[in-house]
């Protein structure tokens, strides 16, 4: 049983045949127009000049300059997306992909900003004594406290074997000379 392999010419003919059958000649590619693209390019240059001038010579209060610059940049970016990158003439699916990505960026930066603002409020109240640490913070703080106490005890009462009983016996001299080492084991014992 031998398989039939079409030559490249035959394959091309088959493809063209299928293409003409299934889609006819409706799907001709959109040719990039010249004048609209030139107009977009000129607009982009003008907006670049505008963004420089507004940033240099207009002093808006607060974050006004930043917002204005970002509005202009978004306008320029949209022009590039829609015209230079053909999204306006393309299938909607490509636009959906970009929109999803931009949406993710907005979430990412937006929630980071919200988080930062909320954190500032939290820190302020924390410093004013209105909020106390809880949850894992407390556990961590306690563990550190215990570790510090153990280390101090080892440092001050290095010769008193009786106080730390088994612990000191197990580790011999190490437990006395190495404060951190002893502290680690102290924590383990507590757990």
């Amino acid at each position: 049983m031998s398989h039939y392999h079409p030559t490249r010419e035959e394959e091309k003919a088959i493809h063209e045949e299928l293409a003409s059958q299934e889609l006819g000649h409706e799907h001709h590619v959109h040719v990039t127009p010249y004048w609209p693209m030139l107009a977009v390019f000129v607009t982009l240059v003008i907006m670049t000049v505008v963004t420089v001038l507004t940033a240099k010579f207009i002093d808006l209060p607060g974050t006004g300059n930043l917002l204005l610059a970002m509005v202009i940049a978004c306008f320029k970016g949209t022009l590039v997306f829609a015209y230079f990158m053909h999204l306006r003439y393309d299938k909607l699916l490509n636009t959906v992909v970009v929109a999803a990505s931009v949406f993710a960026v907005v979430l990412f930066i937006g929630f980071s900003m919200l988080d930062l603002k909320a954190r500032a409020a939290f820190n302020h109240e924390y410093e004013a004594g209105e909020i106390t640490t809880g949850g894992m913070n407390r556990v961590v703080a306690n563990a550190n406290e215990i570790a510090r106490e153990k280390a101090l005890e080892h440092g001050h009462h290095g010769d008193e074997h009786g106080e730390h009983g088994d612990h000191a016996d197990e580790h011999g001299d190490d437990a006395h000379t190495d404060g951190d080492h002893g502290a680690d084991h102290g924590q383990d014992d507590d757990h």
């Binding site: 963004t51 420089v52 940033a55 240099k56 930043l66 610059a69 970002m70 202009i72 940049a73 970016g77």
Partner: peptide, 11 residues
């Protein structure tokens, strides 16, 4: 670059 330029150089 359209976004980086104003953010870093201008505002």
């Amino acid at each position: 670059w359209i976004f980086l330029f104003p953010l870093l150089y201008l505002v």
